[in-house]
């Protein structure tokens, strides 16, 4: 247990020190989206899924936003630049936007 504590501590310090600001911004967005998803899930567990399509639309919207932001984070991370030779940060952001447009078009349709 102690190991885990120290590991978590060093993780936190390393994260604060080594992460570029733009990635921290994306991370905060991801945490926000994650919390939104958890709140929706808790609500559904308590109140039931009645308009199932609305719940699914909302929940999948958060899941999709989360992974799309994760994509953006991975692709703009300077450490990963070698793995994505063809993807510039601008291109990554354009992809992010395109995916979000499609996702939220479907979400709006599904909310019904």
């Amino acid at each position: 247990m102690n190991d885990i504590k120290t590991a978590a501590n060093s993780l936190l310090t390393a994260y604060i020190k080594d992460t570029p600001k733009s990635l921290k911004l994306i991370d905060s967005y991801m945490v926000y989206v994650l919390l939104t998803g958890i709140i929706q899930f808790v609500y559904v567990v308590i109140a039931g899924t009645f308009p199932n399509n609305a719940f699914l639309a909302g929940f999948i919207s958060t899941v999709a936003s989360f992974v799309l932001a994760a994509n953006l984070r991975i692709q703009t991370n300077p450490k990963n630049a070698s793995q994505f030779p063809t993807t510039s940060p601008e291109r990554a952001f354009a992809d992010f936007l395109a995916c979000n447009v499609v996702v939220h078009f479907a979400v709006a349709n599904f909310l019904g």
Partner: peptide
């Protein structure tokens, strides 16, 4: 192959 979100989309 490319790891492109666009192709994933």
């Amino acid at each position: 192959k490319t790891g492109s979100a666009f192709f994933g989309l």
